[in-house]
Simulated assay, not measured.
Amino acid sequence: MNRLKISIYYLQELNYRLTYAIFGTFFFFSIAYTYKQGLIFIFLPKGLSYFVSTSLTEIFFTYLQLCTVFSFSFGFSIALTQLYLFLRPGLYEFEAKIIFNIIITAIIFYIFLYVFLFPLIAKILWELFSTYSQSFTAIDLTFEPKLHEYLVHLQQLNKILIFSFPCLVIVNIIQTHTNIQTWIKYRSIAYITAFFIAAFITPPDILSQTLIGLPLILLYEIQLKFWAISEEYKKQLLIRQPIKSYKYTNRDKKQS
């Protein structure tokens, strides 16, 4: 009977925490949809306010898609936090500390990512491809950007940035149980795995898979380079460490 009461109690608590996550998601969706025009204006390139719409329902579904992506991202973070609070009493102290540090690191990482890095990457990609499109002089070509396709482009970039932190965590976990020679030996398998992940989270076209697979490979190589530098630094530190000399004191004479 006590087990049944405890099970009902935990089910009720889990139900409450999931309800918080669902209501938080809908609340954020309502706020995002209320300020949908200002939200889109944030992601527009600087100095450009002209886009083309070719469908009757395109604007509505574009607003809906943008608000849904934002609200589900926010709701997913709430759900993970509530799940941690639900599992916290049953975890060991070191397990709870590790998960808490990962959550705090993820919050700081994504704040830095979307406040500083995401606008910079979006600006660089827009200037690069828009300049190339406008300087296409082989025929009389007019570049008129489409709003939905531009937001789809930002969504693909968002996928790359979202999966960067879990990839870093997984790579660091694998790094603690392996050595650098294993990473170098199985580098080709890592490349295939990167494109497999890209094929799983992107539409079935080569360009999208390349745009996500190449940054994962670059992340792998950067991690490998930093690991090699760290290993070399530790070796040099051990070599330069002075040897401690043992002094024979009067206390040692008495003990002998």
Rank of each mutant, 00 (worst) to 15 (best):
K247R: 06
E93M: 12
H148P: 00
Y150D: 09
F143H: 11
Q255P: 02
F76D: 01
Y233M: 06
I40A: 13
L207W: 08
I99D: 03
T105P: 07
F196W: 00
L237E: 03
I229Q: 10
K225L: 09
K234S: 11
T182F: 15
Y110M: 14
I108D: 08
N101H: 11
N15R: 12
G24Q: 04
Y35T: 13
Q12D: 07
A190R: 01
E58G: 04
I78C: 05
F94C: 04
Y132S: 04
Y150N: 07
N250Q: 10
A32W: 14
L44F: 14
K234L: 13
I217R: 01
Q37H: 12
L214Y: 00
I239H: 11
Y186H: 05
N2D: 11
I98C: 10
F51T: 03
T202Y: 04
L56W: 06
L157V: 02
E93R: 14
I121K: 02
I160V: 15
T34A: 10
E93Y: 14
Q82Y: 04
E232L: 02
Y20E: 11
Y84C: 04
F143L: 07
T105K: 14
A79S: 03
L120M: 13
V152M: 12
S164K: 00
I103Q: 15
Q255Y: 12
R88K: 15
K225H: 04
N172D: 03
N101E: 12
C167S: 08
L147K: 03
P203A: 05
V52T: 09
K123W: 02
I229G: 03
I59D: 08
I160R: 03
A96K: 15
F74P: 13
I174T: 08
A106F: 09
R187E: 01
P119F: 05
I206C: 07
F86W: 15
T176W: 06
T193D: 00
I121E: 02
F143I: 06
L11H: 12
I174E: 04
E93C: 12
E144I: 14
L237R: 04
F27H: 01
G90S: 09
E231A: 13
P242S: 07
T210L: 11
Y16T: 14
G24E: 06
A106K: 07
I102G: 07
L211R: 05
F29L: 06
K247P: 01
K159Q: 07
P203Q: 03
A122R: 10
Q155N: 15
L91F: 15
T202A: 07
K36S: 14
A122P: 05
F200L: 06
F76H: 03
R88Q: 14
I59R: 09
T62A: 06
L11W: 13
K253Q: 13
A32V: 15
F165M: 11
F74E: 13
I173M: 07
T19E: 07
N2H: 08
I108C: 10
K185P: 03
F94Q: 11
I197K: 00
N101L: 09
